[in-house]
Amino acid sequence: MTVLTVTEPRPRFLDLVASEWLKLWSLRSTGWALLLSTLTVLAFNVGTAWDHYRYWYQYDARSRADFVANEIPLSDAFTGNASLVLMLCAAAMGATALVGEYGSGLIRTTFAAVPARGALMAAKVLAVTVVQLLFGAVVAGASFWLTQAVLSARGAGLPITHPGALRIVVASALLAPVCALTGMALGALLRRGAVSIVASVVVLLLLPMMLSERRRLTAVLAHGTPARAWQRLAWPGPVEPPFPWSAGGAWLVYALWAVGAVAVTVLAVRRRDQ
């Protein structure tokens, strides 16, 4: 009697990406989190521009001229408070995308269906990155357009072709996937939703605030964080900290955090049990 053995084909990487994409959007929290995060970030940015619009004529003529000359409209395009909200929301969504499966136990079924954990995590990372990149692009682009439209009513709006404007939009858009990947990496290490989100707050928000720019060592360490990298790229005027650094260095920080977070996520899942 001949026994036939059926060998199932290994899933292709695109199949894994499609599966992770469907899995991500099957959660109701994904859509709501993106919507609420978008509205909150826009509220901070447009609210700041609206304040300048509302109280425009309470400034004297020289102050109004300095407002445009010093490129303050670019600061309204994406404010510091909005960046903090974006970082927190993106990191939380990145952590939840991975930790949620551990909490529900779905991760066991996933690993049983796809033993190749490295490829599986790479697919999950790609799906989260694409979603967060789209989220960041929509939020940053809409913020710039809305804030400059408000300020244009007072003759203070700037076009996207203005020097430094496109850099602010791109830096703000890329901040979302960088922080989401960082949150995912912390989730892969800690595997607890609340703990991962708290760790994201400490690493992405509190740590940069604790590092002073007045000493070289702490300044260099601060420059190595995504928050300070965004500040460097989004700053419209000349850089005047005690220890200045280049925009190229800030872009490099973005890249290193993203690559490092992906490596940590994949290695942490591959080398640890369920």
Results as ranks from 00 to 15, higher is better:
Thr2Val: 12
Thr5Met: 13
Arg12Asn: 01
Arg12Phe: 01
Asp15Lys: 10
Asp15Met: 10
Asp15Cys: 06
Ala18Gln: 09
Leu22Lys: 12
Leu22Met: 13
Leu22Asp: 10
Lys23Ala: 09
Lys23Trp: 00
Lys23Tyr: 00
Leu27Glu: 05
Trp32Tyr: 12
Leu34Gln: 04
Leu35Met: 12
Ala43Trp: 04
Phe44Lys: 00
Asn45Phe: 06
Val46Trp: 09
Gly47Phe: 02
Trp50Asn: 01
Arg54Thr: 09
Tyr55Trp: 11
Tyr57Ile: 06
Asp60Gln: 07
Ala61Phe: 07
Asp66Phe: 11
Ile72Trp: 15
Pro73Val: 03
Leu74Val: 03
Leu74Gln: 09
Leu74Thr: 03
Thr79Cys: 03
Gly80Ala: 05
Leu84Thr: 08
Leu86Gly: 13
Met87Asn: 02
Cys89Ile: 08
Ala90Val: 00
Leu98Cys: 01
Ser104Thr: 15
Phe111Met: 05
Ala113Lys: 01
Gly118Ala: 08
Leu120Lys: 05
Met121Thr: 10
Lys124Trp: 03
Lys124Gly: 02
Ala127His: 01
Val131Met: 15
Leu134His: 08
Phe135Glu: 14
Val139Met: 14
Val139His: 09
Gly141Tyr: 08
Trp145Lys: 06
Leu146Ala: 15
Thr147Met: 15
Val150Phe: 01
Ala153Leu: 14
Arg154Ile: 03
Gly155Leu: 09
Gly157Cys: 04
Gly157Ile: 03
Leu158Cys: 07
Ile160Pro: 07
Ile160Ala: 15
His162Gln: 14
Gly164Lys: 05
Arg167Glu: 14
Ile168Glu: 04
Ala171Phe: 05
Ala171Lys: 03
Ala173Trp: 03
Val178Ala: 09
Val178Gln: 04
Ala180Leu: 07
Leu181Ser: 06
Thr182Arg: 00
Gly187Ala: 04
Ala188Cys: 06
Leu189Arg: 13
Arg192Asn: 13
Val195Gly: 04
Ser196Lys: 09
Val198Glu: 00
Val198Tyr: 00
Ser200Gln: 03
Val201Ile: 12
Val203Met: 14
Val203Tyr: 07
Leu207Asn: 01
Pro208Arg: 12
Arg228Asn: 10
Arg228Glu: 13
Arg228Asp: 09
Arg232Ile: 08
Ala234Lys: 05
Ala234Asp: 02
Pro236Asp: 00
Pro241Ala: 15
Pro244Thr: 05
Trp245Ile: 00
Ala247Leu: 12
Gly248Asp: 15
Gly248Gln: 13
Leu252Glu: 01
Tyr254Lys: 05
Trp257Asp: 03
Val266Glu: 07
Leu267Met: 12
Ala268Met: 01
Arg271Leu: 14
Arg271Cys: 05
